[in-house]
Design a protein around this nucleic acid. Structure first.
Length: 421
RNA sequence: GGAGGAGUACCCAAGUGGUUUAAGGGGGCAGUUUGCUAAACUGUUAGGGGCUUUGCCCGCGUGGGUUCAAAUCCCACCUCCUCCGCCA
């Protein structure tokens, strides 16, 4: 969430920043109006409370000295009733305020390219070169089905579309990828491994910015107050919700394997085949909590850590800086890693690495304190390191042979004990 | 699911309706003393919001309620502990 003080002090700055990312700027004026009302009413209530405290004190003194306090008590009761009325009003206004401030997206960082949609994202790096196939490369779902390691038909029997069953070497490859990614991040990049709940409460979802705006994109339980996480970012970032972290512990770096669940409402007909867009998928997520002064350095490093997985797997990719109009709701700056898919002849997103600055920290109240200093909000960052299903798909496509079999990338041979699938 | 018990600040803990503006201790920080360390002594130490900022309001797990006045009384909920039942 945005800093209320900034919204009061410099609404024009917010207006221009949010215009750049095509957000609803009418919320800014609504905020000003409601906020002003809130300030006036809370001030009035505070003044009355002061009076009530003074009068109650006097009642106590009178009673102790044996005097009659009934008229003062009567008057104080009136003040109390007024306070109650005001507080009822304030509660309503706070709800209105939340309706506005929780729906305002983050401001793009100065280095974010201008643009209104994904066509204006900027390529800033390319690694590896797509392999030239002597035959027409097949799509990953065709390869996987052909090898008997992916079974979409039976998954549909269990759960419907956008689900998959991994079988035999398919299951082993998925598991190997998870272990490989976790090993690299923990042993080479210094992240602490986390395994966390995939069912979380509403506060968590608000803390990282999925709610209240994106309710219809989340799976939620009917009989219990839980949501299924769309990414481990939710569980891991909320680990430190309502905490003040010691400054010397920063940056805190976590990696977490989890299942992720997405309703994919509104993406009917998009990527209906294959592993690309599933309701349930595996992902290894990287999350950092850091001092605002270094968050953009940490962002570059986190992106490089995610890139390492692609490099070790020998998968060609490019790094895209998302333009302002394509940024996610909570993000101030995002790099997407896009991996090469030979069957489509194009790069597709496999990781999204974002700096949220203090946007999530403010919602989730995650702060840090330097010795002798005041608590400040941390900056939170995260990125996929990587989406496992999409990595699986990319390996099948990039390492396929003409006979439909797939070479195992060198980095995975120790995990699979095989050269060929 | 059932029956009990507990939740006070960085930690331990006192406090069952009114000088409690949350006692006391530990720890931390600052200072005095000291060749250095320790000890002793003194001071200080939860976080947050607002404004008409020498101040005021909020604050004792969370949210309501009772009362002139709530850490204290009432209701609901949350978390942890003990036991019973069920369970991978």
């Amino acid at each position: 969430m945005l800093d209320a003080k900034l919204l009061r002090k410099d609404p024009e700055k917010v207006r221009s920043a949010l215009t750049a990312r095509q957000a609803d700027i009418s919320l800014i004026d609504r905020f000003a109006k409601i906020d002003q009302k809130w300030r006036a009413l809370t001030f009035e209530a505070d003044e009355l409370k002061k009076k009530r405290n003074e009068y109650s004190e006097k009642v106590g003194q009178l009673k102790r000295s044996g005097s009659d306090a009934s008229s003062l008590m009567e008057e104080t009761r009136g003040i109390g009733d007024k306070i109650k009325g005001l507080e009822e009003e304030i509660r309503k206004i706070e709800e209105e305020l939340n309706e506005v401030i929780l729906y305002l997206p983050n401001l793009p960082h100065a280095t974010v390219p201008a643009g209104s949609d994904s066509t204006q994202n900027k390529e800033i790096k390319k690694w590896g070169s797509p392999k030239q196939f002597a035959f027409k490369p097949k799509a990953h779902d065709e390869i996987g089905t052909g090898l008997g390691i992916l079974d979409f038909d039976r998954a549909a029997k269990l759960s419907g579309s956008r689900f998959v069953v991994y079988r035999g070497m398919g299951s082993a490859l998925e598991r190997a990828l998870i272990n490989f990614m976790l090993d690299v991040h923990t042993k080479e990049h210094g992240y602490t491994e986390i395994m966390a709940p995939v069912l979380v409460n509403r506060e968590c979802m608000v803390g990282t910015g999925q709610l209240p705006k994106f309710e219809e994109e989340m799976f939620k339980l009917k009989d219990d107050p839980f949501y299924l996480i769309p990414t481990a970012e939710v569980s891991v970032t909320n680990l430190h919700r309502e905490e003040i972290l010691p400054a010397d512990k920063l940056p805190m770096k976590y990696c977490c394997y989890s299942l992720c669940f997405r309703r994919e409402a509104g993406s009917y007909g998009k990527d209906v085949k294959g592993l690309i867009r599933q309701h349930q998928f595996n992902k290894v997520e990287l999350v950092k909590f850091c001092d605002p002064a270094v968050s953009y350095d940490e962002h570059e490093k986190l992106t490089a850590d995610a890139e390492q997985i692609l490099q070790k797997l020998g998968l060609p990719y490019r790094v895209m800086a998302l333009c302002a109009g394509d940024l996610g709701f909570s993000s101030a700056k995002t790099y997407d890693l896009e991996v090469w898919f030979p069957s489509e002849g194009k790069y597709r997103e496999i990781s999204s690495c974002s700096n949220f600055e203090d946007f999530q920290a403010r919602r989730a109240n995650i702060r840090f304190k330097k010795a002798g200093g005041k608590p400040e909000f941390v900056h939170t960052l995260n990125g996929s390191g990587l989406a496992v299903g999409r990595t699986f798909a990319a390996i099948l496509e990039n390492y396929q042979r003409e006979d439909g079999r797939v070479d195992v990338p060198d980095a995975l041979k120790p995990y699979l004990q095989k050269d060929l699938i």
